[in-house]
């Protein structure tokens, strides 16, 4: 019985990891939008992280780490640090919000909070790396508005695909 559970877990991580990386890769093909810092993306791969957060904290962080390493290997150290800092904050928020039953925040609210955390993490990294704290005021407003939009999307998509992802999990 135990081996089955572990295998199931590994398989699930594998599938979800691949999904997250595929979404990340597809998003990286989107050209940089004016007004937003290069690298700002809809964050669809976060849907995967958020789903994993509801099933296990360690698993969620594993996916986050996987995305960061992928970013590092394909786009360089700066990309890795940005992905890691944004991912850590966002996944932590997701874990807290999704594992606790005590609040009335819906999926979209969770999506927005995670997106905002992700962007905050990345902004902090960007400021530290470039040594310009003024980036917060420069990119801040637009990034936050963008986060609301992407949060809406990821939250809504998450709610919609949970049944499907659950089915995959159960079929393993």
């Amino acid at each position: 019985m135990e081996t089955n559970k572990n295998t199931k877990r590994v398989a699930m991580l594998g599938i979800m990891g691949a999904l997250a990386l595929a979404l990340s890769f597809l998003e990286s093909l989107i050209p940089a939008l004016p007004g937003l810092p290069p690298g700002a993306k809809p964050g669809l791969s976060n849907i995967v992280t958020m789903f994993m957060a509801s099933s296990g904290i360690a698993d969620a962080f594993f996916i986050t780490a996987l995305k960061a390493v992928f970013a590092g290997v394909t786009r360089g150290t700066t990309a890795m640090l940005m992905s890691a800092s944004g991912g850590l904050l966002s996944t932590a928020a997701a874990c807290i919000l999704l594992c606790s039953k005590k609040h009335s925040i819906g999926y979209i609210g969770i999506g927005i909070i995670c997106a905002v955390c992700h962007n905050i993490g990345q902004l902090i990294s960007a400021c530290l790396i470039s040594g310009t704290p003024s980036l917060i005021f420069g990119y801040g407003p637009l990034l936050l508005i963008f986060a609301v939009a992407t949060g809406f999307v990821t939250g809504a998509v998450l709610k919609a695909v949970i049944p499907a992802l659950d089915r995959i999990s159960k079929s393993l």
């Binding site: 925040i105 819906g106 999926y107 927005i112 637009l142 990034l143 609301v148």
Partner: peptide
């Protein structure tokens, strides 16, 4: 099952938008 969008979510949306302003 959690809701998709409720009062609290609206509050959060507004709060973030105000922050950006």
């Amino acid at each position: 099952m959690k809701k998709l969008f409720g009062k609290t979510d609206l509050l959060i949306t507004v709060a973030v938008l105000v922050l950006s302003l």
